[in-house]
Design a protein around this nucleic acid. Structure first.
Length: 482
RNA sequence: GCUGCUAUAGUGUAGUCCGGCCAAUCAUGCGAGCCUCUCACGCUCGCGACUGGGGUUCGAAUCCCCAUAGCAGCACCA
């Protein structure tokens, strides 16, 4: 009926983007994607959409400890769910030859050296702005040591390749950062190697080789950007345009993959799609639409301020999307069974969607007994209106509520300000468990809901919910929001 | 400790580059009312912010300085 209101928050213009862009989303396959990833993924996607160009998915799996074999699949699924317009896909684990080749080049031009110092010792020297003994190696010595690394001549921790930066750089984070390390038993699901490239090196190399023009990522990478620029300078490559947005927290949610994993292991969470988590699959399970996530993330934008992501803002976007299309049903929480004296059997016809008669009706057959929400009888109400059916007098004289037919006229109920209440005929009542982040609600719903698997519906007076599974036991639904 | 970034209502955001049109935008939230056979949707009205202090200027949310607060980095993680 109403056109959905769409408020587009216009993202700031990117420099040097007029002729198109090459951007990338580069997750680490350590688990499924969450809202933090969605921000990076959607922002980059939106700029590619705006300026035209290509959108690279680069799986950054160069640290075996941070690779979960299942995550390759989950990341792929999550990206499809978001509807990203990915044009190219790369796995860093396929590209070790490139990293070795360019690593050797960097050593060859004096931009890096092989360091055999103990890690702790190097750290102390670095803090004191003092070169470690290895920094004085000639290029020939370094190339020899590099070959020895590749040939398995060092054990884990015995040698690394460092990028030569400015040792007296005022920021200790910049001084001679590592580019390769040795791992003896890496247990990587996709490759066998002992010399592993590190993130700052692979990112700089890949961004250049893949022609990335613009990088948008969190400000936790600001220092990495400065490090990567050293590599760009050594080779004389053209730098991309960088933008770093602020840190994003989410009300009452852990976004750390390792913490989520621990929670699942310990039984705190039922799995990656536990609706208390901020993973995309958890959002999907409770009926949040990808377009709502996209809108919410675009609304936040690329500001450098740290922000707190609000569920209310996401829910509002989602409500705009689902309210026009979600069919309405009765769900009776904490049901109490009543028989209604003096009422004749009849059928009620309730709209599947208010204000849109074309969507049709559902039929509820009243005979004599109905289930009503227990909470309606907390106070001694005199009359209630069974929605789309009739009025009911409530007699409290015996101490417990006794219901008698109170006429059909809606105006009577209005005059007495009687609550309009959802109800279910005994014959149609279907067991329904509604899972909410705050706990489960046991109740009953209309039988028709059995045909709504995977759909988002609105339980009138309760809220929107996604129908998850149907079984002989009944219906399992996940609460979305009001 | 060192290095850097940021600071607009409960939340998010516009305005800040190029000072005046800002008695500060929009959304969300909250409150009141209307509509309605849902506590949804829609409509109306209302609530609510330029971190603090100096300075420059006829004029500062906007420029400068200091303070404070938050965040990030200083890993053979990404």
């Amino acid at each position: 009926m109403n056109a959905p209101k769409v408020h587009i928050h216009v993202l700031p213009h990117l420099e040097r983007a007029e002729k198109g862009v090459v951007m990338r989303f580069a997750p680490n396959p350590s688990g499924p994607l969450h809202l933090g990833h969605a921000r990076a993924a959607v922002l980059n996607d939106a700029y590619v959409e705006r300026y035209g160009g290509s959108y690279i998915l680069r799986i950054e799996d160069t640290d075996p400890k941070r690779v979960d074999p299942d995550a390759y699949r989950m990341v792929q699924e999550d990206i499809e769910w978001m509807g990203l317009r990915i044009t190219d896909v790369f796995y860093q684990s396929d590209r070790f030859d490139q990293y070795y080749r360019i690593g050797r080049e960097l050593i060859g031009i004096g931009g890096a050296y092989v360091c055999t110092c103990e890690n702790e010792q190097f750290r102390i020297l670095k803090q004191a702005k003092t070169p470690c003994p290895c920094r004085g190696h000639t290029i020939e010595e370094n190339l020899e040591l590099w070959q020895k690394m590749l040939d398995g001549g060092f054990y884990e921790g015995e040698a690394s390749v460092r990028v030569r930066t400015t040792l007296d750089h005022p920021d200790p984070a910049m001084r001679d950062f590592p580019a390769f390390r040795i791992l003896n038993e890496p247990m990587h699901p996709r490759i066998e190697a002992q010399v592993y490239p590190l993130m700052n090196f692979t990112v700089a190399v890949d961004d250049h080789l893949m022609g990335v023009t613009h990088v948008i990522r969190g400000k936790d990478h600001i220092a990495n950007t400065r490090r990567q620029k050293f590599i760009y300078e050594y080779f004389g490559w053209n730098e991309p345009v960088y933008r770093h947005y602020g840190r994003m927290g989410i009300e009452g949610v852990v976004l750390s993959t390792s913490q989520m994993r621990e929670g699942i292991r310990s039984g705190t969470y039922s799995g990656w799609d536990d609706i208390r988590l901020g993973t995309l699959r958890a959002l999907a399970r409770r009926g949040i639409k990808p377009e709502a996530v996209r809108q919410a993330v675009l609304d936040i934008g690329i500001g450098e301020t740290d922000i707190s992501f609000s569920w209310d803002n996401l829910f509002a976007k989602n409500r705009d999307i689902i309210d026009p299309v979600a069919d309405r049903f009765f769900f009776v929480p904490d049901p109490l069974l009543f028989s209604i004296a003096g009422a004749t059997p009849r059928e009620a016809h309730a709209l599947l969607h208010p204000g849109n008669e074309k969507r049709g009706y559902r039929t509820l057959k009243f005979e004599n007994e109905v289930f009503l929400p227990g909470q309606e009888f907390q106070k001694e109400v005199q009359m209630i209106r069974l929605k789309d059916l009739f009025n009911v007098h409530v007699d409290w004289s015996s101490g417990t509520p006794h219901l008698t037919y109170g006429g059909d006229a809606l105006s009577d109920a209005r005059a007495l300000k009687a609550p309009v209440v959802q109800w279910l005929p005994v014959g149609d009542a279907t067991r329904c468990t509604l899972h909410t982040p705050d706990g489960d609600i046991q109740g009953l719903c209309e039988g028709t809901v059995r045909s709504m698997e995977d759909k988002v519906v609105q339980f009138e007076r309760v809220g929107f919910a996604r129908i998850d599974t149907i079984s002989d036991e009944g219906v399992t639904a996940y609460f979305c929001h009001k």
